[in-house]
Computed example of a mutant assay.
Amino acid sequence: MKTFSLLLLVVSPLFIAVNARSNIRDAPSTTVDIQDGQTGVLMVVPPRPTETGTKRIPDADHPFIAPGPNDMRGPCPGMNTLANHGYISRNGITSFEEIIIGAAEAFNIDRDMGVGMASLNLLARGNAFVNKISIGGVSPLVPPLPGQIDGPETRGIAAHGRGEGDASMTRSDIHIGNSRNFNQTLWDEDLEILAKFGADGPDGPATVFNLETLIELKRQNLESDQLLDPEFAIPIRRLNLVFGTTKQATKRIMTSFFMNQTFPENWFRAASPVLGGSIPGEIAAALPQWVPGHNDENGVFVADPPAPAPFNISSGCAAYWDNFANAVPGSLANVTGIFKQNVDMLTGLLFNASGCSEPVAPAGPTNV
Rank of each mutant, 00 (worst) to 15 (best):
T3N: 06
F4G: 03
L14A: 15
I24V: 15
R25T: 10
A27C: 02
S29N: 12
G40Y: 03
V41S: 07
L42V: 13
V44Y: 05
V44D: 08
V45I: 15
P47F: 09
T50Y: 02
T54W: 00
K55P: 00
D59L: 09
P63G: 08
P67G: 13
P67F: 12
G74M: 06
G78F: 07
L82S: 06
H85L: 07
G86S: 06
I88H: 08
S95E: 07
E97Y: 00
E98P: 00
I101N: 06
A103Y: 01
A104L: 04
A106Y: 03
A106H: 03
L122P: 01
A124G: 08
A128H: 01
F129V: 03
S134G: 04
G137N: 07
S139P: 01
S139L: 07
P140S: 15
V142S: 02
P144K: 11
L145G: 02
P146C: 06
Q148G: 03
G163E: 09
A167I: 08
M169G: 13
R171C: 12
H175A: 14
N178K: 06
R180W: 04
Q184L: 11
L186S: 03
E189S: 11
I193P: 00
L194Q: 03
G198P: 02
D203S: 13
E216L: 01
P235E: 12
P235L: 14
R238S: 13
L239Q: 14
L239H: 09
V242W: 03
G244V: 03
T250P: 01
K251T: 10
K251W: 00
F258Y: 14
Q261C: 03
W267R: 01
A271G: 15
V274N: 10
G277Y: 08
I283P: 02
A284E: 13
Q289N: 09
V291R: 13
G293V: 09
E297D: 14
E297P: 00
N298C: 01
A307S: 14
A307R: 07
W321R: 04
S331T: 10
S331V: 02
L332R: 09
N334W: 04
Q341I: 12
N342V: 07
D344W: 05
D344E: 13
L346A: 01
T347F: 02
P359W: 09
G364N: 12
G364S: 12
G364E: 09
P365C: 09
